[in-house]
Amino acid sequence: MPLFKRNPFGHILFVKRLLIQILGIISHGRYRSFNELQIEGSDILRQLPDKNILFISNHQTYFADVAAMIHVFNAALKGRDDNIKNIGYLWKPKLNIYYVAAGETMRSGFLPRVFAYVGSVSVERTWRNAGKDVKRQVKMSDISNIGKALNDGWVITFPQGTTTPFKPIRRGTAHIIKTFKPTVVPIVIDGFRRSFDKKGLMIKKRNVLQSMVIKEPLEIDYENEDVASIVEKIEYAIEQHPSFLKVLTPEQIKEEQEYREKRRFWGPDSGKEEEE
């Protein structure tokens, strides 16, 4: 491969690889030392094709969520089963991983611009700008760029467009799914909001249970399902449908506790999580 080979967005792959390795080394301890990351579904990642994959996820911080996913994706592809031990998986990282992010966020300083080079597909939000509510048309170039990224590899998107939980799914995600017909893989994360500040750069609390669950791809009838149906599927898949806010019965609470216990890995002191 030529030293200065570029991806479809003009980024030099050699530079991108180097940035992923450096940032990966810096961030690894945030998921292995200060706070441990529990993973489910690594085997699903290994079964996916190399391109036209759209990951949909709930969103808790600006950058820590994506960084964790890049770790998990590369570890899984190197044969790690639900763990990111031995950071050697970043020696030859997957370079065609992208993530959709707000343009204003990725232009907000030197570090975000570095993160953008790692794989951001920057879009202009149609409903929010500079902390104010706005209404503006979708830029067709943004849609085209997402399609370009899907055509080249894997794309991560946060269909709520915000780190605030249980906000509505943006219908644009459903339109992208109908237009480009990607394999849609849901991911549900938890604990990142308690671990990090809103930007996901500073560690806020330690010994917090962080989790990432990769689910089986959604079954979608691209031709016949309407946007509303796809939006609802996304809501359930990433566990952001309003029904998840319902009051649980004692039996359901017990089942949830038993389920969480199965996923617990920290040891006898792991139940001492701080309350928000």
Rank of each mutant, 00 (worst) to 15 (best):
E219Q: 11
D221L: 08
G200V: 01
S195I: 04
Q210M: 15
I203F: 05
L201A: 13
F192A: 00
R194S: 10
G200A: 02
N224L: 09
M212A: 07
S211T: 14
M212W: 01
G191F: 09
D221T: 09
L201K: 14
G200F: 02
F196H: 09
E219V: 11
N207D: 04
V208A: 12
Q210G: 10
E223T: 13
I220A: 04
K199Q: 06
L218K: 11
F196G: 01
D221C: 06
I214H: 05
Y222A: 07
N224G: 02
I203M: 06
K205P: 07
K205Y: 10
M202V: 13
K215P: 08
I203R: 06
I214P: 06
S195Q: 05
K215F: 12
Y222F: 15
V213D: 03
K205G: 08
I214D: 01
F192W: 00
F192D: 00
M202Q: 12
R206K: 13
L209T: 01
R206N: 10
E219F: 09
Q210P: 07
S195M: 03
P217N: 15
D221Q: 03
E219C: 06
E219R: 12
I203N: 05
R194T: 09
K215G: 08
L209S: 03
Y222S: 11
L218P: 04
K198R: 02
R194E: 14
K205H: 15
R194C: 06
R206F: 10
E216A: 09
